Amino acid sequence: MTSIEEVESFQRLVEARYSVDEVAKMVGKSAAYVGWRIDLLCLCEPAREALAKGHLPVGLSWYVSLLNCDNQMRFLARYARGEFKRTRDAEAFAQAARAEEKRQEEQGSFFVLADEVAGGKDGQDAISGSLDLPESEREKLVDDRRKLVGRIDKLSLMGEILSELASADPEQLALLLAGAPGDVPGHQMRIEHLRDLTLRAHKNLRQAQAIAAVRASSIQINPEAAASSVA
């Protein structure tokens, strides 16, 4: 049974007035699993076909199903062009696109992903969305950016230290660190702490990259303005 066939079977049971909990017990799955799979019915037809053929992973498909149909189609085009290095990058992009959809809905506008990412200047000195902010806030953003980039640049020193530890002979490390302040276990704990922080920072940066990519390739349409232009 394919993922789509499973989803459709769940849906038929729900339409036959079985609750999601009852369906879950019948098939030996959790209620969350059944509900999550039923959400895949919100996929547009091309996305369903991609899922059925195995071109679109099931987990990623769920994030795509939360987007409106137009954005699903534009996401699929990006995915097919290989714009995402990893599935997690694609998931983060879809999540960021959905968050932007909700934000625009709250403001009374439509959010649509552009068909192509706009080219042009590299925008190294620009801050996305800064034109919508008061000058004082834009200045603060520029100052905060300078400070953060300056701190990130210092990571090269940590990289050099980690490279030295990674290439060192374990026997030599034992001789140098055993009995020293912190001893070997203490320094190992510090490295493990850095590893955990690095993983969390990497996750945050992946999400930040997705948000930046969505905002850089988005179109906002005000329904009233669109209606007046047609009239």
Rank of each mutant, 00 (worst) to 15 (best):
Q107M: 08
R98Y: 14
F110W: 09
E101Q: 05
G108F: 03
K85I: 11
K85S: 09
R98W: 10
A97P: 10
Q104Y: 03
A90C: 09
F111S: 00
F111W: 06
A96M: 11
Q95F: 06
E91L: 07
E83H: 07
L113F: 02
A114Q: 15
A92R: 00
T87I: 14
R103M: 06
E83A: 12
R98P: 03
S109T: 09
V112N: 11
F84N: 13
A99D: 11
E101M: 07
A96C: 12
A97M: 13
F110C: 02
F84L: 10
R86A: 06
K102I: 15
A97G: 12
G108R: 10
E106F: 01
S109Q: 13
T87S: 11
F111R: 01
L113C: 05
K85M: 12
A97C: 13
A90L: 10
E83K: 13
E101Y: 03
D89G: 12
E83P: 01
Q107S: 11
A92I: 10
A92K: 08
E101C: 02
A90K: 01
L113P: 03
E116G: 01
R98L: 10
E91N: 10
R103S: 13
F84W: 09
E91P: 00
E116L: 02
Q104L: 14
R103Y: 05
A99W: 03
K85W: 05
F111K: 01
F111L: 08
S109R: 06
Q95K: 14
D89H: 08
V112F: 04
A99Q: 15
Q95C: 08
A90P: 01
E101F: 00
S109M: 10
V112C: 04
K85Y: 05
E116P: 00
E101V: 03
A114F: 00
D89R: 02
Q107N: 08
E105A: 09
D89Y: 01
A96S: 15
Q107Y: 04
A99H: 12
R86C: 05
E83N: 13
Q107C: 07
E91H: 08
E83V: 09
E91Y: 07
A118C: 00
A118D: 06
E116V: 11
T87D: 13
E105V: 04
A114G: 08
R98D: 07
E100R: 12
R88Q: 15
A96V: 04
T87M: 15
D115Q: 04
A90N: 01
D115V: 00
A114E: 12
F111T: 02
A94R: 05
A94L: 10
A94Q: 14
F84H: 12
E91F: 02
R86V: 07
E106Q: 13
D115L: 03
F84D: 14
E83W: 12
E101T: 06
A118T: 07
R103D: 14
G108H: 07
A90R: 04
A94T: 06
E83L: 11
A118S: 04
F84K: 11
E83C: 11
R103V: 05
A92W: 02
K102C: 06
R103H: 07
Q104H: 08
D89T: 09
E83D: 15
E105L: 07
Q104I: 03
V117Y: 03
F93W: 14
A118M: 03
T87K: 15
V112L: 13
A94M: 13
E116N: 08
R103I: 02
E116M: 03
D89K: 03
Q95H: 09
A90S: 13
